[in-house]
Design a protein around this nucleic acid. Sequence first.
DNA 1: GTGGTCTAGACCACT
DNA 2: GTGGTCTAGACCACG
Lengths: 123, 123, 123, 123
Amino acid sequence: MNIIINSSSMIPIYEQIIECIKTQIAKGILRENDVLPSVRLLSKELRISALTVKKAYDILEEEGFTVTVHGKGTYVCAPKNEVLLEERQKQLEQALENAIEQGRMYGISDAEIKKLFDLIIEG
Amino acid sequence: MNIIINSSSMIPIYEQIIECIKTQIAKGILRENDVLPSVRLLSKELRISALTVKKAYDILEEEGFTVTVHGKGTYVCAPKNEVLLEERQKQLEQALENAIEQGRMYGISDAEIKKLFDLIIEG
Amino acid sequence: MNIIINSSSMIPIYEQIIECIKTQIAKGILRENDVLPSVRLLSKELRISALTVKKAYDILEEEGFTVTVHGKGTYVCAPKNEVLLEERQKQLEQALENAIEQGRMYGISDAEIKKLFDLIIEG
Amino acid sequence: MNIIINSSSMIPIYEQIIECIKTQIAKGILRENDVLPSVRLLSKELRISALTVKKAYDILEEEGFTVTVHGKGTYVCAPKNEVLLEERQKQLEQALENAIEQGRMYGISDAEIKKLFDLIIEG
DNA sequence: GTGGTCTAGACCACT
DNA sequence: GTGGTCTAGACCACG
């Protein structure tokens, strides 16, 4: 398990955790019946409140991605939809396209847009 | 002046007002020295609190799009090219950042995001 | 009569008018029984509301600097205190001293303060 | 934390709060990563509206003195020297501008103001 | 009439 | 618990 969160992002931490785990399920890194790290462990590792992790796990269970067994832990269910990855790829594509389109509409050259993109992605 | 807001949107009303007015300035619908509707009038028309409108006007002034004269009203500034350019640069930056963050959250590697970006921008 | 106002100043226009007239009385430019310009005339010259000029004249009368005769005009009274000019000189001195002191406390060199001062006073 | 406000002053309460906190940061009473009192707590202590405190905190964040984490609180930033220097420069500028404006309103010529300034700064 | 400030509550999202 | 947003009034200063 390798979960990375960005506390200064506009996206709530619990959503970041959910997305991370969904991704790992979709990619096959997490398989059916695998155990997720305990709420307490993950909250320590990420230095966040246990309640935040719990909220993420609750939503994952509600959406059918995991099942929680009292006193034992949280287990991964069979992946629901294989198309998820493709879907995400498309969403990213759309987001990038929109950004580029916006820049062009503002009269910013492709070279400048690319420079800005590289600057951002390199951190 | 034609400002449309959606109170059930996740975007705060004051931001919707700001965006609306910025767009109208950018499009030339609102020109230098035009007067914005008074805080009270707009709040009545939109059926929202006067404070919400005022917050929007305050931010617009802070960002240099308008100037407020006590007891007279809020006027559109000469769209200083600096301001417009800066604003656009910022918006593009934000759009690119969001797209990249979305991709990362989805577990797509930076290299893949970059490849996708290059593909799109090269048409 | 030469009254200069600065509408972008933080000081209310009516106060600027009051100060201007008080100064001219103190300096002897306006003498006892001189007539002030009519509210309408001055409001036209300064391109401000007549109500604003009226407010200034009202306060001047209240403070005993002028007396208004219905249907005739506003007349200057005998100057109340000759020390006014000296007083003002002192106030300005204090304001300048405070500004310089503040700059020094902030670790800004006298040369830099002077440069900034020249920049501001030359507009 | 010790914040004193004067509700009968002409200076808006939120500005008084801002000044108080800025001063405490400048003096080192508030240090990096210190937590400001919560909006609700401070509003209760000062017996003012929570919105008034929030406005002060918003401006402090905008000016780079604090950073606010949703659901956690408002933290003091590392006093970036840039920010402090900029801030001080601005304050000095404001003080000089006020002094000059006051002198002008009193009918003192720019030359005289400048002479007075030189006299004071040369000690 | 205008904007500037403030109140005393409310509901929501996040931790 | 925290901050983020919003409401429906109020009073003041300015023009």
